[in-house]
Write a protein that binds this DNA or RNA. Structure first.
Length: 684
DNA sequence: ATCCTGCTAAACATAA
DNA sequence: TTTATGTTTAGCAGGA
């Protein structure tokens, strides 16, 4: 798996939790058999990883040498399965973690060998003749598929960024870099390999694989050919095999390859469309049993994994099962999209990186329009321990190439100042905490960023939930829809589902601003903006009595859990204050940030108005902004709704405006009224 | 240091 | 019984 689903995600919080459940959501589909550490890499891990990979590559080379010796003479009967197997590991490893191996490293590694580069070159060529062909095909293909799926699903989980010393911006930068590197390296490696391949003699290129790293235009062309020309070709009884698209007609063609190789040699890793075309027109793709769709005796057609004894039967299968029909066409299209997606992603990320680099170098004070988190930088992994790092100045400003994973850090380090951003993301900084700042603008601005980057959004769950609900056409969502929104909008929430889903549920219950409504079709959640403004915090429930404070409460409650509610009730209301007063207290007890809305309706209105304004469009229809509004969110007119929960919560009325309702009887939801206790508590 | 708040885990309840 | 959905509480950690 690209990323260990269950890995205990060190939450910024420190409460390291490991829900093995993890990532069922976004990852569910990714069941690649090969583990790729490509993501979830901490900064430090990166280094070790890098080293390991270097070793792997080196090992790989050694292996090749050995084999070479044994075989004296590069004969390519890819039948030696053991060798294949032997090589398989290193190769795949190298491929799987391309993002860390820079060309320079490769070079270095090569040079470290006992042999001269030239020798190595030769060796490599021969070896490639032996192994790489199939190997590469398979691995690369796998890799492509996996990464694609991964991207589609979770748009790459950048790094995990546990380093708490880095500013959030740095992290964003780092992530960006990683992403780009990943993509670039993928590209690079593929090209590299293909380049190597192309050098060797007597080998025809796995054309199909080429397409995987090719430019969209090329793909387009290809697709055109497939969809358009192909039919004709079929009729003509000729198979101009288009890189794996020739399946329909792929008739066993008599081997003859040398000529083809020539072409490869000329292209040598460079794939001009021209070259591709010429190559593709060569009808002998499967000559050496090296059909791109056939590896290790298995049909590599997406979704197929049929096993075949020999190449012939595979071809038969190919023609029968994967002929040019709707299904195959669709699959092909998907594959193309996959590739295009990758290309696109790469282009995008490159651009983004460029912008970031530029920005950082220029130290421009202006916010860049780049998709990096604008306002706040999220990042959950950052911690305040960062102070040390905060004075970025100190760090060496080593100019580095984007290819080196870590450097960007230092670079970023040196340029990014905490002040440059709205705030240094402490851990998960809640964006909307102290101010009912709508998160929508921020989300909007950084939408793409959050969608693609595995960073924790700096918003509280409550804010996010609210956002999700308000974004919906009906301003109401079922729990499941809320889940979906989370996963859709944030890469971060594509894993550890059990954790955040639980948090979502908890928040829904806990915050008064979320109102559960039932209709004929089930239940859904709406937002009471009024409440949201007032005190989005633990309104709903009992007083917050845990923690250092409120010990008395704890004691009381602990003694008789069963009586908790009663006790609280009596404590809260009875003894202390008149109901009316309590009501007002309740209002006041709401955390300070709501001050504006407490007390006078006027103020509240004002606050509300402001908020409305800030929120812009998204609020319309909801609370009419009136203080006295039933508060109960936008009940959809269409259904028969039935607000289950505290339909007419007393507080509702007290609302901002006041002390009125004081007489909430403990009848309905005792605990609902406990905030009053809370208020009292404060007094106590 | 204290208090407030958000997050997470967990226990528990309930309905499908 | 299992699963999804809700509710409530405890404890931890960050921020003011």
């Amino acid at each position: 798996m690209m990323q260990e689903a269950g890995t205990a995600e060190a939450t910024s919080n420190g409460t390291a939790k490991q829900n093995g459940v993890a990532a069922e959501l976004g990852l569910r589909d990714i069941r690649s058999k090969s583990a790729t550490p490509s993501s979830d890499i901490t900064a430090t891990n990166l280094m070790t990883l890098q080293q390991q990979q270097a070793l792997q590559v080196a090992r790989q080379l050694l292996l090749k040498q050995q084999q070479q010796q044994h075989q004296s003479g590069a004969i390519k009967s890819p039948k030696s399965n053991e060798k294949q197997a032997a090589l398989q590991v290193p190769v795949s490893v190298a491929m799987m973690t391309p993002q860390v191996i820079t060309p320079q490293q490769m070079q270095q590694i090569l040079q470290q060998q006992v042999l001269s580069p030239q020798q190595l070159q030769i060796l490599l060529q021969q070896q490639q003749a032996l192994m790489l062909q199939q190997q590469q095909l398979q691995d690369f293909y796998k890799k492509q598929q996996e990464s694609l799926q991964l991207q589609l699903l979770q748009q790459q989980h950048g790094s995990k960024q546990h380093s708490k010393e880095v500013s959030t911006q740095q992290l964003a930068f780092q992530q960006q870099l990683l992403q780009v590197q990943q993509l670039q390296q993928q590209h690079l490696l593929s090209l590299q390999r293909q380049g190597l391949l192309s050098i060797q003699a007597n080998q025809n290129l796995p054309l199909h694989s080429l397409t995987q790293g090719v430019i969209p235009a090329e793909l387009q062309q290809l697709w055109k050919e497939v969809t358009g020309t192909h039919v004709k070709e079929e009729f003509s009884g000729r198979n101009n095999g288009h890189r794996g698209l020739d399946l329909s007609s792929a008739s066993p063609v008599p081997p003859k390859s040398s000529h083809l190789n020539q072409q490869h040699a000329t292209t040598n890793g460079q794939y001009s469309s021209h070259a591709l075309k010429r190559e593709s027109s060569a009808p002998d793709e499967h000559t050496h049993h090296s059909h791109p769709l056939y590896a290790h005796g298995v049909c590599k057609w997406p979704g197929c994994e049929a096993v075949f004894e020999d190449f012939q039967s595979f071809l038969k299968h190919l023609n029968n099962e994967h002929a040019l029909d709707d299904r195959s066409t669709a699959q092909c299209r998907v594959q193309m999209q996959v590739v295009q997606q990758l290309e696109l992603q790469l282009a995008k990320d490159k651009e983004r990186l460029q912008a970031m680099m530029t920005h950082l170098h220029v130290k421009s004070t202006e916010p860049k329009p780049t998709p990096q988190p604008l306002n706040l930088v999220s990042n959950a992994t950052l911690s305040k321990t960062a102070p040390g790092a905060s004075p970025p100045l100190s760090l060496p400003q080593t100019p580095t190439t984007p290819t080196t994973p870590l450097t960007p850090l230092s670079q970023a380090h040196s340029v990014i100042t905490p002040t440059s951003l709205h705030s240094v993301g402490p851990i998960r900084r809640r964006y909307s905490d102290k101010y009912s700042m709508p998160i929508s603008p921020d989300i909007g601005q950084n939408k793409e960023f959050y969608m693609n980057t595995d960073v924790r959004p700096p918003f509280t769950y409550a804010s996010l939930i609210r956002q999700a609900i308000l974004e919906s056409p009906e301003r109401q969502l079922t729990l499941n829809e809320i889940y979906n929104w989370f996963t859709r909008m944030f890469a971060y929430f594509r894993r550890n589902a059990a954790t955040w889903k639980g948090a979502v549920r908890t928040n829904l219950s806990l915050h008064k601003c979320f109102v559960r409504v039932e209709d004929d079709f089930g239940s859904f959640w709406t937002v009471d903006n009024e409440e949201f403004i007032r005190g989005r915090h633990i309104q709903r429930g009992r007083p917050r009595r845990h923690g250092v404070d409120n010990n008395n409460y704890d004691k009381l409650l602990v003694q008789s859990p069963a009586l908790v509610k009663n006790i609280q009730t009596s404590l809260g209301y009875g003894p202390v204050l008149p109901a009316t007063f309590q009501a007002s207290m309740a209002e006041n007890s709401i955390p300070l940030y709501t001050t504006a809305s407490i007390g006078s309706p006027t103020l509240n209105s004002l606050a509300n108005a402001i908020r409305e304004e800030m929120n812009g469009a998204m609020d319309h229809g909801n609370s009419n902004g009136s203080d006295s509004s039933p508060g109960r969110s936008p009940l959809p007119a269409m259904h028969h709704i039935n607000i289950k929960e505290e339909p007419l919560d007393p507080e509702e009325h007290e609302g901002p405006l006041s002390l009125v309702t004081a007489n909430h009887s403990p009848d309905f939801d005792h605990h609902r009224d406990y905030e009053d206790d809370h208020g009292n508590e404060d007094m106590l």
